[in-house]
Amino acid sequence: MTDYTSRFLSAPDGLQLHARDYPPAPGGETRLPVICLPGLSRNARDFHQFALLVSNGASRPRRVIALDYRGRGLSAWDENTANYNVATECQDVIAACTALGISRALFIGTSRGGLILHIMAAVQPDLIAAAVLNDIGPEIEAEGLKDIRDYLSNRASPVTFEAAADSLARIHGPTFPALTRADWLEMADAIYREKDGRIVADHDPRLADQLQAIDFNKPLPTLWPQFDLLAQRPLLVIRGEYSRLFSMETVERMKAHGPHVETLTAEGQGHAPLLHHDSLFPRIKAFLDRQS
């Protein structure tokens, strides 16, 4: 017996999307579900441990949906790379919710997923009952975005998953001192998959193209008007202690924008924090438990 069911859904343009659907333990069927939205190049597997804790929790379990955006995980790749954008992916998330019979939910948005939630607050706000923003806000730092661009552009194919974990620990270890060897192995399993006898990143490599096109000599766009809409409902904003993408100054400004904004620092982690980590999960679970 598996812990989840794979759901294959259609995007508005017909492209096939995939989601993991984790059913709740008895008693959680009537509660609002949790929908998990991953980062730019990541997929539903990022949330596996978190989803198990929430769906099988001893107190207030909930159904959890973890999505693969187009071009990631088990979702189809898009021939038109221009569709790898936050607005299109937001419409994909809304379509997935409709297909799964979800009209209102609690959302977890990691990095790219949090940007999608900003757009959703403007185009379909009633879908969001509350949200957790994981190391993301309406304003991001250019240096952190450059780090992601360079990492995605230069990533090599490891020989084994153990080698992949070694590489991740070597590259990201300085900003994730809280992680153990087991954490790095789990991360490697979430990021990579075996294809044609090779270990490869589980996304369309053309995702990096949009980052290469950014002109870092110009200020990055911000989403403060959209954040003001998002901040009208309960929010938990998490920042990795060593994040280079999401500044503490932005966190403080977000707190001033709405009475429903709670904040939390993921100690010993960078961009983006592992939400099932012992130092974070109890606080996140408490936030979710306060919702319907």
Rank of each mutant, 00 (worst) to 15 (best):
D147V: 11
D147I: 12
I148V: 15
D150P: 00
Y151L: 01
L152V: 08
S153E: 01
S153N: 09
S153Q: 07
R155I: 04
R155P: 00
S157K: 08
P158D: 00
V159Q: 06
T160K: 04
F161M: 14
E162W: 02
E162N: 06
A163C: 06
A165L: 04
A169F: 00
A169Q: 04
A169K: 03
R170Q: 04
R170G: 03
R170L: 03
R170Y: 03
R170C: 04
I171V: 13
H172C: 06
G173L: 02
G173D: 01
G173E: 01
P174N: 09
P174M: 07
P174I: 06
T175F: 01
T175E: 13
F176M: 03
F176Q: 06
A178R: 07
A178C: 10
T180E: 02
D183G: 01
W184R: 00
L185M: 14
L185P: 00
E186C: 15
E186H: 13
E186L: 15
M187E: 10
M187T: 05
M187H: 07
M187N: 07
M187K: 05
A188V: 06
A188P: 02
D189T: 12
D189L: 14
A190K: 04
I191H: 07
Y192F: 15
R193F: 15
R193M: 09
E194N: 05
E194V: 12
K195V: 15
D196Y: 01
R198I: 10
R198W: 14
I199W: 07
I199F: 09
I199A: 03
V200M: 02
H203V: 01
D204G: 00
D204N: 02
D204P: 00
D204R: 02
L207F: 14
Q210E: 09
Q210F: 09
Q212T: 08
A213G: 02
I214C: 09
D215W: 05
D215Y: 05
F216T: 11
F216A: 10
N217D: 12
P219C: 06
P221Q: 02
T222V: 14
L223I: 05
W224T: 13
W224N: 13
P225N: 12
Q226D: 14
F227D: 09
F227I: 11
F227Q: 07
D228N: 11
D228M: 11
D228K: 14
L229Y: 03
L230N: 08
L230V: 15
A231F: 05
A231T: 10
R233W: 10
R233E: 06
P234H: 11
R239A: 04
R239E: 06
R239Y: 13
R239F: 06
E241Q: 15
Y242F: 15
Y242C: 10
R244T: 15
R244M: 11
L245R: 10
L245N: 13
F246L: 04
S247V: 07
S247G: 11
S247H: 10
S247N: 12
S247Q: 11
S247T: 09
M248T: 07
T250Y: 03
T250R: 08
V251L: 11
V251E: 11
M254N: 12
M254W: 05
K255P: 12
K255V: 12
H257A: 15
G258K: 08
G258F: 05
P259M: 02
